[in-house]
Design a protein around this nucleic acid. Structure first.
Lengths: 344, 344
DNA sequence: TATTAGCACTCGAACACATAGAGTGCTAAC
DNA sequence: GTTAGCACTCTATGTGTTCGAGTGCTAATA
C-alpha cells in the first residue's frame, strides 16, 4: 500500500514528467511540493516507488520517469479531472457553430478541431454504416453495359457502385427491377440487404423481369461490398512528428503505417465498446503502438448506434486534459447528431 | 560547350549519385568509366564541371554531387530512357488485371501500385469532376425538413449533399421539382449547373411548384459547393520517410503538410497541362518542396478530359526509371479509361 | 523513529584533441 | 593532353577530461 506522501510524490512526478518530458529529480520535486520535504527524504520515497515498480530510471544516476505501471496507477487513482479552460471549450464548440447537414461533415470537423486542440492524432469512427436503414434504391444506366446502383440511407449517406448489366437489356426491365427492389428493401438495414435480396426479391424478379439472372447477379455483387474505410476520419496525422517522444524514424513509419491502414483500426481501438477507455503502452495490441497511449470514448448517434472518438499520443500524454476534452466532445457530439436526426 | 568526355563524366556522376546517395570521387569514377582515364584527369574535368555549375562539393575535400543545374542538364540531355524490366511492367499491368468498374477505383489502385513500384509518393488527379455531364438528378426526402440531393454523372460518379427543405412542404412538389430539374439539366456539365439552374429552371419551377423559392434556394446551395478534394488520390504518403535524403523532421513535416492539403495541389503540380514535366528542387513553387523533384505526366480519360499522374521524390530521384514508368502508365491508363467509357 | 545533511559515486553531455581515410588541387614529369 | 606524386583539407571516429545533475548510503539530528 502506498502512503499519502508516496501518492503525492508519484502524482507530482507523473504530472511533472508529462509536462516537461524530462526525468524528475529529488531536488525539483522537493521545491515543487507544498509541504516541503528535503531532497534526501524524497530520494528515499522515490527509491521505494521504484522498488514497487511505479517509477524507472533512464540510467543509474538519472531522475525518475513513470513506468507503465506508474501511468496506470496515475490514471486509475490520481486523475482529478479539472474543468477545461474556457478557450478550449470555445474551440471545441466551434465544431457546431456552422450548421452542418451531414453526419460525415460534423465528424470530419470534430477530428480536425480535436487534433488542433490536443496536438495529438485523432481518429473518429462514424456510426456503423451497415446498420443504416435503406431509404431508397435506384439504378441509373450509364451506357449499354454499365449502370450505377445507388442506395440512400436514413442518415443521408449515399452508397453507390458501378456494375455491368447484360448488354441489350430491355430498359423497362431495369425500371421494373428498381421498383421491386424499392418495394421490398426500403426499411432494411444495409447489413441485412444481402439476405433479404435473395430471400424476398429473387422469386419476384423471376416473375417480372426478363434475364433477371445476370442482372441480379451483378447488382448483388455491387451492393455487397461496402467501402469499409469510409467512416474513419483522421485529424492531425502528422502530429506525431511534433512529439519530442518520437525521434526514431523507423518507429514513426511503423506507427503511421499502422494507423492509416483501415484494417488495423479494430486492433488500435476498442470499436463499439461503451464509455471511456485508456490503453497505455504495451497494453496496446500492436507492437508498433507500444510507445503510445490511446484514449477512446464512445458517443451516441441516435437510434441506438454509437461511434468512437480516439486520441493517440505518446505514453507521456496529458491524460487529464484529454479525458476532459473527450468527455465534453462525446456529450456535445451525441447531442448534435441526435438533434440532426430527430425526424428520420 | 561540354566536351564528349565531360558529358560522359557528368552522366556517370549523376547516375552514380542517384544510385548511391554518396558524393562521387575521382577514383570511383575512373574505375567506372569504360574508357579509362586516370583519377587526375577526371579531377581536372570535375573541377571544370564544377566551375560551370553542374556539380557541387559538400565540403572542400569531398567528392562531387550534382547541382540543380546538373540535374537539369542530365534530365534534358543525358536521359536515355531504357526499357523497363519485365517485372516492373508486370506489376504495373496488375493494376488492370482485376476488372474494376469505377474510374476512382482504377486511379486509386494506380496510385498504390505506383508508390510501391517507385518507393516514392504518388499523386494522381482524376478528371475534373466539374466537366462531368449530369446523367440524372434525384431528391430523396430524409425527414420532414431534410432531403438529400443526388447527381449522377456520365462517368458513374455520384455527388450527394444533404440540404434542408421548408417544413410542411408538399411531397408532390419535390417530385415535380425533380422532374423539372431532370428535364432541363440532364446533359449539362457540372460546372454549368449553377448557371443553367437559374436561367432555365427557375421560371418553370415558379409556375409548377408551390414555395419554390425556399426549396430552390437550399437546393442550389447544396449543389453548388463541390467536394474539391475528392479526386485526388495518394499512394505511399509515408515513402518520404524511407528516403535517406530526408532526415530533418521539421522539413518532413512541412513537406507532408503541404502535400496533404488539397489547396496546395495546383502549386505542387502543373494541373491540366499536357505531356511530361519535370521540376527539380527550387524549380518548385513552394519552399517546402525545394529538396524535391516532381515528375508529372498527363493521361487522357476520354471525352477530351485529362488527369495527371505525379511522382514526388528527392532531387536525387531515379529520373530514368520514373520517366519510363510514367510513360507506360499514362498510356495504359488512358487506354483503360477510354475502354471503360466507350459507350457513355 | 522519522527526517535530513553530508559525501562519495555514477552517468551523460559537452568539449578538446588525435588519427585515419577519402578526396582535392597543383605541379612537374611523361 | 595525360598522369604520377604530393601536400593539404575536411569528415568521421575514437579517446580523454570536465562539469553538473542526480543518486544511495551513513551518520547526525529532532
Amino acid at each position: 500500500m502506498l502512503t499519502e506522501r508516496q501518492l503525492l510524490i508519484l502524482k507530482v512526478t507523473v504530472d511533472d514528467y508529462i509536462q516537461s518530458a524530462q526525468p524528475v529529480g529529488s531536488n525539483q520535486l522537493s521545491k515543487k511540493l507544498e509541504t516541503p520535504f528535503s531532497p534526501a527524504t524524497i530520494r528515499n520515497e522515490l527509491a521505494e516507488l521504484e522498488r514497487m515498480g511505479f517509477l524507472e530510471k533512464t540510467h543509474t544516476s538519472s531522475g525518475r520517469i513513470p513506468s507503465e505501471k506508474g501511468y496506470r496507477y496515475y490514471v486509475d487513482h490520481l486523475l482529478t479531472p479539472r474543468p477545461l479552460p474556457k478557450e478550449d471549450i470555445v474551440q471545441l464548440r466551434s465544431i457546431f457553430e456552422e450548421k452542418l447537414t451531414e453526419t460525415e461533415e460534423v465528424i470530419k470537423r470534430s477530428a480536425m478541431i480535436l487534433s488542433e486542440l490536443t496536438n495529438y492524432t485523432s481518429i473518429l469512427l462514424g456510426p456503423d454504416v451497415r446498420r443504416h436503414i435503406v431509404k431508397k434504391l435506384s439504378i441509373v444506366p450509364l451506357s449499354q453495359d454499365t449502370a450505377v446502383a445507388i442506395i440512400v440511407t436514413n442518415t443521408g449517406h449515399v452508397e453507390n457502385r458501378v456494375f455491368s448489366i447484360p448488354s441489350g437489356l430491355n430498359p423497362s426491365d431495369i425500371e421494373k427491377m428498381t421498383n421491386i427492389l424499392n418495394e421490398r428493401l426500403v426499411g432494411v438495414a444495409l447489413n441485412n440487404l444481402h439476405l433479404r435480396l435473395e430471400q424476398e426479391t429473387l422469386s419476384i424478379l423471376k416473375q417480372h423481369v426478363e434475364r433477371y439472372g445476370e442482372l441480379f447477379h451483378t447488382f448483388r455483387q455491387a451492393v455487397l461490398l461496402p467501402h469499409e474505410d469510409e467512416n474513419i476520419y483522421y485529424g492531425g496525422k502528422l502530429n506525431i512528428l511534433k512529439q519530442p517522444d518520437f525521434h526514431d524514424l523507423q518507429k514513426i513509419r511503423n506507427l503511421m503505417d499502422v494507423m492509416e491502414e483501415a484494417k488495423h483500426i479494430p486492433m488500435i481501438l476498442p470499436v463499439g465498446s461503451q464509455g471511456l477507455h485508456i490503453r497505455i503502452g504495451s497494453e496496446n495490441t500492436l507492437t508498433a503502438m507500444e510507445d503510445c497511449s490511446v484514449i477512446t470514448v464512445s458517443y451516441d448517434t441516435g437510434k441506438e448506434q454509437t461511434g468512437t472518438i480516439a486520441i493517440i499520443g505518446p505514453k507521456r500524454m496529458d491524460y487529464k486534459r484529454i479525458v476532459s476534452i473527450l468527455d465534453l466532445l462525446s456529450g456535445d457530439l451525441s447531442k448534435e447528431l441526435n438533434r440532426m436526426f430527430k425526424g428520420t
